[in-house]
Design a protein around this nucleic acid. Structure first.
Length: 441
RNA sequence: CGGGGUGUAGCUCAGCCUGGUAGAGUGCCUGCUUUGGGAGCAGGAUGUCGGCGGUUCGAGUCCGUCCACCCCGACCA
């Protein structure tokens, strides 16, 4: 993509409505535009990142034996009356009336709909286990939306729902999602710490929030310092096998949100106990028959009984993650995208647009990256060098190739790694080879 | 939902107290000079001063009312 043709409305100054860093940077980098409070349009750069994150989530859900469906944003109130939640759910639920005066709502969540799908089609234990997920926009009419896309009213979310005949099978389903979440966040370059969460009486120990650490996080978290050395080692997971050992390994070390943390009973003391802020990016929990019972979602067991199906639900805040990644990865010059979610892998900067040698060399590099399947943004605008470099730092592509007349005299370009600022001179061919390899192309 | 605040050019803001021709910086357009970290000079375009009502000879400015947005708290993926 050539920047001269790309819609990237960057701002030099901070819009005043944005307080926290991810919100500021997303507006300045031309990723989103607020449409109204807590509701955003996604511009090309932001949309690319959103889709990258969504795709990673999708791939890991599929790998973990979940199947993708798509449920609507607008739901009928009838199902919610059946589950008893129509009156319970407060003003966060956006209620709508259609032309026939029927009560409708913009879904804040999908337990009712998915349970309806299940009860309509599934009658036997032989059809289980089953896990259905979708990635869809939701709406919660928060009193006070803030933090940009991290706490919007409209947000893109993945939620999965598992169905099992008994608690032990439900635990296995829970474990599959637990491990899938570890893999998902690790792929995005994030360390997400699973923290025991309050699930009420039904869930037992089967409720975890996945929290990434960031100083601007919304909530306070406590954890053993061993977490700082615990990183996910990529490995092939057999989702049909027993995942309990992996889950145990990732739950044995203390970590808790402030609601769950009790200094009186906390097993970690002194320097070992770390206290920081975090952002919740995922939440998984088992809720048993809470919805299956009122909605009549039952299956026949092998011995001919009928049981209310055991369910769990597993959410990931996809649009929130865009902001969360930035909170976790930026500096004073702008965003620093982890490669896996970067909108482009490489930015080629032609410092001098009217220099034939530079123009040729940068255009060649751009074309060769595209041919190699590496997303590349070529800054071919007739701008000052400083402005172009500042823009490139702001939008945070993992690698920059700086092509200028000074280097071209010696046949070299400069390769800059955004995260470290480290610059190396090399020939364009070497730069191409290095970054194509780095991008896994 | 309680408390506080802000709406003036694409963006950041001054002007309002004390009513009298709509401003600055940046961005944008044109030209020239520049060209390795947001350049210099010259010229140019841009506003229903958030909406409605009122007071006044006259309202961006005073009064009323509505709306939008932001911040703190409570609440939440």
């Amino acid at each position: 993509m050539r920047l001269s043709q790309y819609f990237l409305p960057v701002l030099r100054e901070n819009p005043k409505e944005a307080e926290i860093v991810s919100h500021r940077l997303m507006l300045r980098a031309g990723m989103v535009q607020q449409a109204s409070a807590g509701i955003y349009s996604w511009l090309p750069l932001g949309f690319r990142v959103l889709k990258k994150i969504e795709q990673i989530v999708r791939e890991e859900q599929n790998a973990a034996l979940a199947q993708e469906v798509l449920m609507p944003t607008i739901q009928s109130a009838d199902l919610w009356r059946e589950s008893g939640r129509y009156d319970d759910y407060g003003k966060e639920m956006l209620r709508i009336t259609d032309r026939h005066e029927r009560d409708m709502l913009y879904g804040p969540t999908n337990e009712e709909l998915i349970t309806d799908i299940f009860r309509t089609h599934v009658r036997s234990y032989r059809d289980l286990p089953l896990n259905l997920y979708h990635i869809q926009w939701k709406f919660r009419d928060e009193v006070r939306p803030r933090f940009g896309v991290m706490r919007g009213r409209e947000f893109l979310m993945k939620d999965a729902y598992s169905f099992d005949t008994d608690f032990e099978a439900a635990r296995a389903a829970y474990n599959r999602m637990f491990v899938a979440y570890l893999k998902t966040f690790a792929r995005m370059g994030l360390t997400a710490i699973p923290m025991a969460a309050d699930s009420g009486p039904i869930g037992g120990d089967l409720s975890h929030e996945f929290i990434i650490l960031a100083d601007t996080g919304e909530s306070e978290v406590f954890y053993h310092r061993d977490w700082e050395d615990l990183t996910w080692q990529d490995q092939d997971i057999d989702y049909a096998g027993d995942l309990q050992p992996i889950v145990d390994r990732w739950t044995n070390t203390y970590a808790a949100t402030d609601e769950m943390h009790d200094p009186a009973t906390c097993p970690v003391v002194g320097d070992d106990l770390r206290r920081r802020r975090g952002i919740e990016v995922g939440h998984i929990f088992h809720f048993g028959t809470k919805y299956s019972a009122p909605l009549g979602a039952r299956v026949a067991t092998s011995d001919g009984h009928e049981v209310d199906v055991f369910m769990g639900s597993y959410g990931i805040g996809v649009s929130r993650l865009v902001g969360a990644v930035i909170e976790a990865s930026h500096d004073e010059d702008g965003i620093i995208w982890p490669a896996a979610v970067a909108p482009f892998q490489v930015g080629v900067v032609n410092l001098k647009a009217d220099d034939a040698t530079c123009a040729q060399a940068s255009a060649n590099l751009h074309e060769q990256f595209e041919t190699a399947g590496v997303d590349c943004l070529l800054d071919d605008r007739d701008e000052r060098a400083g402005a172009k470099l500042a823009t490139m730092d702001l939008i945070g592509l993992p690698w920059q190739i700086i092509v200028g007349p000074r280097g071209m005299k010696n046949g070299v370009v400069e390769v800059k790694e955004r995260a470290t600022g480290e610059r190396t001179e090399m020939t364009p061919e070497a730069a191409l080879a290095k970054l194509t390899a780095a991008a896994g192309g």
